[in-house]
Design a protein around this nucleic acid. Structure first.
Lengths: 245, 245
DNA sequence: AGGAAGCAGATTGTCGACAATCTAACAAGA
DNA sequence: TCTTGTTAGATTGTCGACAATCTGCTTCCT
């Protein structure tokens, strides 16, 4: 009866840890969009060779949060309003699909996990930990995708989530307010526990939509500010940080 | 007005070429599912160091057609019937979304490109080049995603396409018949040119569905054969998964 | 014989150094 | 002054070698 399900042991390769470190730095906004990642400097800071660092960066490039230009460098992706809008509209479709798939699979464990994640959001809200608040809110929404029992969908959603988390973190950094409204989560959880699937799907659209509208407005303002002063013939990220530390 | 829009010059880095080579080998079925990729051997064959090869493999891992187990190796992904089903069902959703987005954006250039790709499929069919037939058929279907003007959707679909192409190539390799039916493409193109968006969406579901049914049946038969006969008839493809027993 | 400990062999992960390329500053010429 | 060619510095791409880890076989003990 020793039915312990052991957690997979930690990937003890430097590459995996570097990926985690970099991803976290990007998703929390510590690395700004467009910023160039200097391999030598990062490798020295992490006390690691460039080989595993470069491999890690390739992974993040394919993950969509870094972009690489041969012989020029690797940069954090730029966030345009269109990107956010694109991600948002696709997210709506995926959410609807995930609810449809996971709906007949809901059971007690699902509801328990739903409550657990909801509680995590509320805890982060009480702690005023905005970064964790974003993280937990996205995990709350991710449950339907995890429960849908469709690996391709889950993978797709996780890829989307990376960007969304980055967007929200940026927004939160600009204005020091938490993005997701509290009581909307309450309704979301209640509808997922209910019997009306269509209502849940509709609510998912409306509710996430509200958050996104604000985010979009912010992104648009950023772009306007950017397009005023910058020379338009050079779309490449030329935001080089003078390292006068 | 010399308004030539130059195509971006080829990425002349070894890494990029290795990625292209490997991807093609996997997608055409030259590298079988589950097969292990020996870094030293491949590097020697390509006359390349292991560094760019490994970076290329990391990209393909994130692209979803390779899977890596630390200190064990990198393998071509296994194809399960469930994977195909998952990819198929998500593809239906994405197709519907892509048609919705691209519908108001259709113009003459769209129709021309549609015809061009349709012609490419027919040419490949005449040439009895089944590999190219699969490739062109997927490109024909990809047009709506390219035209949808949603970068995230396009990226997602391309990721899906990689797997689909691999699945179809496998199926084609097993039974030496072309997978996609000819006249169905005719109908698909006609509906995309027409005025009834709902009809186009519905047809996309049904039509692709037919192809997939056959593919699914094949995959299921493969799995059964695999599960009943555990004899290691081949040393390569039989891959040991870390299972908690 | 059965099973645990230990020893090659092969393969992956990582490192430091070298080569190729880009950027920016500077000089020369129209 | 503007453009063009050159050069120096920095950064990325690639290489060969070393270290860490896994696998399979051998060996030894009970």
């Amino acid at each position: 009866m020793g039915k312990l399900d052991f957690a997979p042991i930690a990937d003890t390769t430097r590459r995996a840890e570097i990926v985690a470190l970099l991803r976290r730095a990007i998703l929390t906004g510590q690395l700004e969009p467009g910023q160039k990642l200097n391999e030598l400097r990062i490798a020295e800071q992490m006390r690691v060779s460039r080989a595993p660092l470069r491999e890690a960066m390739r992974e993040l490039v394919q993950e969509g949060i870094l972009t690489s230009i041969p012989y020029a460098g690797t940069f954090v992706i730029d966030v345009t309003a269109k990107d956010i809008d694109d991600a948002y509209s696709l997210n709506k479709v995926l959410d609807e699909f995930a609810i449809e798939l996971s709906w007949p699979l809901r059971d007690q464990r699902f509801f328990d996990e739903l409550d657990r994640r909801h509680e995590a959001v509320k805890q982060a809200t009480r702690d005023l930990d905005t970064t964790r608040q974003i993280e937990t809110a996205l995990q709350l929404h991710g449950l339907i995708h995890e429960w849908a029992d469709n690996s391709v969908l889950l993978e797709t959603w996780q890829r989307l989530t990376s960007r969304l988390q980055m967007y929200f973190a940026l927004h939160q950094r600009a204005r020091n307010e938490p993005v997701p409204a509290e009581d909307v989560h309450e309704m979301y959880v209640r509808l997922l526990k209910g019997a009306d699937m269509g209502a849940a799907q509709r609510h998912a659209r409306e509710h996430i939509g509200l958050d996104f509208e604000e985010l979009l407005a912010y992104a648009r303002s950023l772009e306007q500010r950017c397009s005023e002063g910058a020379n338009p013939d050079r779309p490449g990220p030329t935001r080089n940080r003078p390292d006068g530390s």
